[in-house]
Design a protein around this nucleic acid. Sequence first.
RNA 1: GGGCGCGUAGCUCAGUUGGCCAGAGCACCUCGUUUACACCGAGGGGGUCGCCCGUUCGAGUCGGGCCGCGCCCACCA
Length: 890
Amino acid sequence: MTPDQSETQPQAAAEVPERPTLDGLEERWSEVWEREGCYRFDRSAPRERVFSIDTPPPTVSGSLHVGHVFSYTHTDAVARYQRMRGKAVFYPMGWDDNGLPTERRVQNHFGVRCDPSVPYDPDFTPPAEPSEREPVPISRPNFVELCLRLTETDERAFEELWRGLGLSVDWSMTYTTIGARAQGISQRSFLGLLARGQAYQLEAPTLWDVDFQTAVAQAELEDRERPGAMSRVRFHVAGADAQEALIETTRPELIPACVALLAHPDDERQRELVGKEVLTPLFGTRVPVLTHALVDPQKGTGLVMVCTFGDLTDVVWWRELGLPVRSVLGPDGRLADVPWGAAGWESEDVGRARRDYAELRGKTVNQARKRILELLEQAGDIVGEPTLLTRAVKFFEKGERPVEIITSRQWFFRTVAHREALLERGRELAWHPPYMRARYEDWVNGLTGDWCVSRQRFFGVPFPLWYPLDAAGAVLYDEPIAAREDQLPVDPSTDVPEGYAAEQRGRPNGFAGDPDVMDTWATSSLTPQIAGGHTAGTAGSGEDDELFAKVFPMDVRPQAHDIIRTWLFSTILRSHLDYGVLPWRNAAISGWVLDPDRKKMSKSKGNVVTPMHLLEEYGADAVRYWAANGRPGTDTAFDAQQMKVGRRLAVKLLNASKFALADLPPEGQSLSNPLDRAMVARLGGVVADATSSFEEFDYARALERVEGFFWWYCDYYLELVKGRRYDTAGSGGGDGAASDGAGEATASVSRALRRSLSIFQRLLAPFLPFVCEEVWSWWQEGSVHLASWPGGAELDAAFGGAQAADGDLENTALAVTADVLSEVRKAKSQARRPMRARVTRAVVHDSAERLAALELGAEDLRGAGSIGTIEKVVSQEFAVDVELEEETAD
RNA sequence: GGGCGCGUAGCUCAGUUGGCCAGAGCACCUCGUUUACACCGAGGGGGUCGCCCGUUCGAGUCGGGCCGCGCCCACCA
């Protein structure tokens, strides 16, 4: 039933509880919403009536914190607004269970580790007493089973929390990023990119985490400040021992991996050296001295050592100057065995090179660094004392040791070639707030290489590929065998490619499955497709192209600003590559929750606030109120005080609704009283403001406006009209024609109260869904969340067609009446008298215009202020002289 | 080093195109149980709008320059 219907037809008396309460509303109403399917997506709606949301699937790695509650509440408020606007809201939830965080938890929780060489054991049960120190090696399929078992438990807990918070999600459409559908879609998209040359594999230097022993992507790096030491190291010019070349380095352990020294082309000081060859200290390897424009002559000695590979700049120099590879670091982050001598690495003194390198081999980077400095010192090739400094070092965001750069075969998606197109997509997207676009552009402009998507891990989406083995059993990487689309999803470690038998796995002339899984973002970047059921061509996962066409491109992607470079960027990329469109029209970027000291909440800091107890202590509506106060894109400090305020607002709505609905509804809709009409006119302005704010995804502004006016309404309007409202409640209809005026005045306020409360209940419903549903249920059929958003027609109806020609006068009447009431209250308060104290005479000084308007509200004002007579004096300055009745001594 | 954002009452923040004595909530103080509400109501004190120039009849609002904080990015040897 629409609100218009409800108010034009006779209503039954409202069923208002004697003592309204917030207790138990969450349980009661979330159960009703589920039972009634209140938030089910209406698939029959035409495309233009659909509003689709690409919700962030939270990482299922244990606990939720208030940051989740914060940003998901923002999205939910928008979803509820759109639903009330008549949209069929597509709002499914996903769980991001794919990836490293889950692997780590499974290892610790069950005391196992994944070893792909172990065969699958269908009867495997995890150890009764998990040991972190001696984990049981298990097969990849067994490991994945445990991952799934653990994530299922987590996902149930998450869903319970979301329901408690009142998210209006369609729970029948939940997806996971490790589920068969997601895997099928992810693999299918990969094969498409492969076929179109947008995915390729390459043996190349890639960013590498030595703890997890996997490749990582540029997007997953972060800088951390670490102490270091800068050492000045002497190289000798080959054949001219007396001539030396000095470099400065923080990574002397990479001297054996040195392939050149570089100077800036214009650096006069180095002119002598350029073009010559020098010998590396200790190892005696000949390396050339070359020039490159990226060398900064101001830094260090102006001469820099290029190693394979110390940092990303080394990779640039190595590639652009065509230098050889001499790599010393193994995948485990230790210095590997290297072949000094004849057929291997060149040295002027092989014996010494072998002897010195033996001191380093097998050591970690840190150990080797310490040792090589000692060796260099002994050799006299350190100049002066090392300088201690602090420098930014790149880390894998989930890692504990700096990333290294190691040459390996990896899969890549092309990004750099699409830079301009991606920037254009960024301009096409509507950002809320708009300045967030800069972060995206910074990132796209700063891309240094294509996206490395392969990971040497286990719990993820495998590449749908096998490779043939030649007669000697060597893998033919350049002839990958792709899975057929109708096979997807496949696991090449257990599934067999077409044309081969299972026994041929790993045999000469047989095949091998691709051992890697995809970067978790390679699947998460497809959430619009996964959520939208885009599974065409994928066997057994429920094709649903009709649904996809209805929801994609989506209307909005809500997410936090820290994952613009990962999730937002990669989703745009994939949609651009696969469909040539933006994945959504709007990006609504939320901030973070900071602790009260304005530090980011994080597990490592131990300042995380968990949300469950907040919901219990303050109630879901109150927690949502706090969250909805956080402006779009702005980091917000955690503040339990705000939750108390939210709770007060909810209680206020209960009580104001009780007051408004206490009497029987009168016939008709039109408002005859000027104050009633002015109030509704003001409310109309608030509705317009809230509506335009919501259209811009500015839920916080909408709440601020609605809330502000609601408190004014309670403090002034309700107080002003109280007397008139009670007038006939007692006097009844016995006076016949004589009481028609009074009867009509009362009917007007009664109608105004119902009209305004109906609107307030709907305006607040996106923020306080539980209490609004409660008060709505007292007098309306159906859910407030399916009622229509307040707007023009119903407001016009309040004026009964006779839109006041003197609307300005009425508005002024309401303003001046409230001003006088405020002055009267102040006088009583300063006289330390109760508010009910009688005012024998109030003299209002004001402009002639306002005094004239005051007349329209004088009756209500006298009632609200217990005022005997009101006198008016024309004046430039507004003032009220209040004469209080003598205090009766008793 | 580049970019973005922020700096308004003790605290958290509003202040949309420049316009009367700068606002709210919390906290603090005073008063008050009047039939929506003690999970309450009424009132009060409290601010050189970070600093300095400039544009203007008029600047919290626009321009320039500083200072401070936060974040993002960077080819950090």
